[in-house]
Amino acid sequence: MLTDVMLPSFPDWFRFDPTGASPIVAVAALLLCGWYVYGAIWMWTHGRRWAIPRTIAFILGCALMFVIATFGVNRYASVSLTALMFQQITAMTVIPPLLIAGSPGRLLLRSTPHHGAGRLVLRAAHAGLRSRWARALLHPLMPIAIALAMFPALYLTDLISLVMATRVGADLLLAFFLVAGIVAAVPLWSSDPLPRAPSFPARLVDIFVEIQIHAVLGLVLIRAGTPLFAAYATPQQGSDPGYDQAIAGMLLWTYAELPLLIVLIVCLSRWRSRDRRRARVNESHEDAELVAYNAYLEQIDQKSRPR
């Protein structure tokens, strides 16, 4: 009976719980936020423009990183599939767009001094951006490969139970969620110049495939009559594992799909804007050619008139 179900209270997910923190992600969030704020302040104090909305987006992304790594949701992720799915979706589809919207690469290039240690940092950044690894990670098929690896391969094989069996495995998995989410999101969200810029049709294919992957896995979790994962098959604090699993599936159908729908709208809008810019450029070229042709005809007409 659903009335007997006792899942971990949702407000408990957002209570600071340092005893169950994931140190890798928590420290990374603090370091990234500190570096970004320092870079933004350096830009402003040196009279250079840097957008405040970008700064807010990046800081918000770092704050969410810290929350999912140090608050109660991280501790509950080992006993509740709903908490784990919420944490994973946040790490893979919510945080990366916020970090990318902050344009950290552009800030690094503009705020790093071009002498001393800063020169070495800039050289390393340029080398990494132009490397084969960067082009491989930005391949149009990479977001699809990551979605397949992080959802069907991780859950439909019950590999998630093996990984979540240890604290180290859970911490490394959360860090991998974030890295994989950023790699998958850069081709879809980034507006900065990239060594490999996927076409808009390729981006749309990526989005549609990811939406279908979430929908299929969510349906499997919702419709399964028994718990699918050994690590989450034992009732915790009187909770029903089947109900907890169904709620996790609903998160895939709702919470995981919303960012993809937003990026779909953004992608279509950018595609339309690019086509309009190209149309204006072509129109201006055609107008210039028409003016030149009319001037040429007028010149011929003047030469043909009797004097």
Rank of each mutant, 00 (worst) to 15 (best):
A83C: 01
L162N: 02
L172Q: 04
P152N: 07
L122W: 04
Y155N: 07
A83V: 03
G105S: 08
R132Y: 07
I144F: 09
H46F: 06
N74L: 02
A91F: 09
L108V: 13
H139A: 12
L159E: 04
A69Y: 01
P143A: 06
R132P: 04
L138P: 04
A153D: 06
R49A: 05
A117K: 11
L154Y: 05
I160L: 03
R123F: 08
R123E: 03
A145L: 13
W42N: 11
P143C: 04
F58L: 13
R49D: 14
I95D: 07
A136T: 13
A127T: 13
R75G: 10
Y155P: 03
L108P: 10
L84A: 08
I95M: 09
Y38F: 10
R123S: 15
S131I: 09
W50A: 05
L174M: 12
T82F: 06
A125F: 15
M85N: 00
P140M: 08
T45P: 01
A124G: 11
G116E: 12
S80I: 04
A134T: 03
M142Q: 05
A69E: 02
A91W: 07
I146Q: 07
P104V: 03
T166Q: 08
W50C: 05
F66T: 04
F151S: 06
G39S: 13
L107F: 03
A147M: 12
P53A: 03
A165M: 02
W42P: 00
L154C: 02
I95F: 09
T90I: 10
M85R: 03
T157Q: 08
P96M: 11
P113H: 10
P96D: 05
Y155H: 12
A127C: 12
R135E: 07
G118N: 15
A125K: 13
M65P: 02
R130Q: 14
L174E: 09
V163A: 01
P104W: 08
L148R: 04
A57W: 07
L98A: 01
P152D: 06
V163I: 15
L141I: 14
P113V: 09
T90N: 01
L137I: 06
A145Q: 03
R167Y: 07
A40Y: 09
I144E: 02
Q88H: 13
G116F: 14
R49K: 03
R106G: 06
R130E: 14
I59A: 10
H139S: 09
W44R: 14
A77P: 00
P104T: 05
T166S: 15
